[in-house]
Design a binder for these strands. Structure first.
Lengths: 226, 226
DNA sequence: CTCAAAAACTAATAAGTGTTAGTTTTGAAA
DNA sequence: TTTCAAAACTAACACTTATTAGTTTTTGAG
């Protein structure tokens, strides 16, 4: 009769959550079965229910744990006395280090949250929207302050957050990159792209026909709900 | 007895692929059932098999169709006489417009490819690696040429591609952004972040303790395969 | 109208899902 | 050694899954 052996300073639930995280990242939440997780730990699937409520609870714990860390850091940055560009840089660095140190949980929180069940799904989406709004507000203040180039702050938030979330795919690729080098290079690209200083265009490719398609929810097909 | 009605210049298979794309994006490949797709079209699930081989074939078609478009554009850019920075800009603009015009298929190709079955999975991963290598090579030449700031070209590729793939999340958010504005802002941030010109740091946040953790496949837990 | 092919249908299969019920084993405190 | 709760087990349930087989309906050409 096998059993769950917790690591030092951890609970048996942590063992399950960690093993589940690896599977959720590798195969996705839906494609991972409780039997997958149980087998990897070395017990039978029903035994897991002595320690967890449900499969969805595991996902909820992962997502809300990560959300809490990001929100906590943002609050500290908002209260700091740094310049707005430095605030943004601090947030970028925090995201990168989270991606490096807790990449499975961050990846799941980024890519599998849609499988959360209510009321957690709505709660998570609200937190996400709120976080991005506050980030955009910081950027806007930096723009007003002339520290940051007058760009659309929502586009900038989008660009920053998704650039960083892509670090995950480098984890998979097997390419060796030092975390420090990754961080410095990525921070450079993003911060220099934001900094306010007039520049000339890259040339030929800039001459492009204008288009004015609006991106919004209205372009999404409705009613996919079951 | 309901039936599949193809749109002009399209096959019945196209109808299935398009409806499936919407579901794959909304719920993910695994969480989408053939009955979901069939019901949305207005037929019974087994009827779909008069037009497709399998659920996995739909995914394969979506992913390889998108891969073909990106590879085709890259080939044209490689053969052009533009500067390397202009080549990169052209690729960035192509990615953004693909994301705007075919966002469902691009999203699926980005996020659901891991559910491909062999031999298509290996083929897709090879194409992906190859594409990124060629992009990194263009960046490296731009660096050698002093058009582009001497950064790690792999990090730059990662930053560019993932920044753009995040446009999808703006589709979901309901925020109205003009496609033109999105493109110009995002191109600005990325191109200015790449351009070679010495700059000073953002300040306080730059003074950060050094870390030297290596990111590589070896840090991933092995043997999640079933 | 005839007839054949295309494409829909119903019924069923075999496998897999998360989870519960009830039972046995384990391990530490007394 | 006894005792008891924690935590493992087996068996099973009620569903859902992609897909196949076999049958009926629809459709368009001759």
């Amino acid at each position: 009769m096998a059993k769950i052996i917790p690591v030092k300073n951890g609970t048996k639930k942590d063992v399950i959550t960690n093993k589940a995280s690896a599977f959720f990242m590798e195969k996705g939440f839906t494609a991972t079965s409780m039997r997958d997780i149980a087998e990897a730990i070395g017990v039978e699937a029903p035994s897991l229910y002595n320690h967890i409520e449900s499969k969805h609870e595991i996902l909820k714990d992962i997502c809300f744990d990560i959300a809490r860390l990001f929100t906590g850091h943002l609050k500290k940055v908002e209260l700091s006395g740094d310049s707005f560009l430095a605030k943004i840089e601090s947030i970028i660095r925090f995201h990168i280090s989270m991606m490096i140190e807790k990449y499975e949980a961050v990846y799941i929180s980024d890519h599998e949250w849609k499988h959360l069940t209510e009321p957690f799904l709505s709660d998570f989406k609200n937190q996400r929207r709120n976080y991005r709004s506050r980030l955009a507000a910081l950027l806007q203040k930096g723009i007003d302050n002339k520290e940051i180039n007058p760009i659309n702050p929502y586009v900038a938030v989008l660009t920053i957050l998704s650039a960083i979330s892509g670090i995950e795919s480098w984890h998979r690729s097997g390419k060796k990159i030092y975390a420090e080098s990754l961080e410095e290079n990525m921070v450079h690209i993003l911060i220099e792209g934001l900094r306010n200083q007039p520049r000339k265009s890259a040339g030929k490719a800039l001459k492009k026909k204008s288009q004015s398609k609006i991106i919004s929810l209205t372009t999404l097909k409705p009613s996919l709900k079951k």
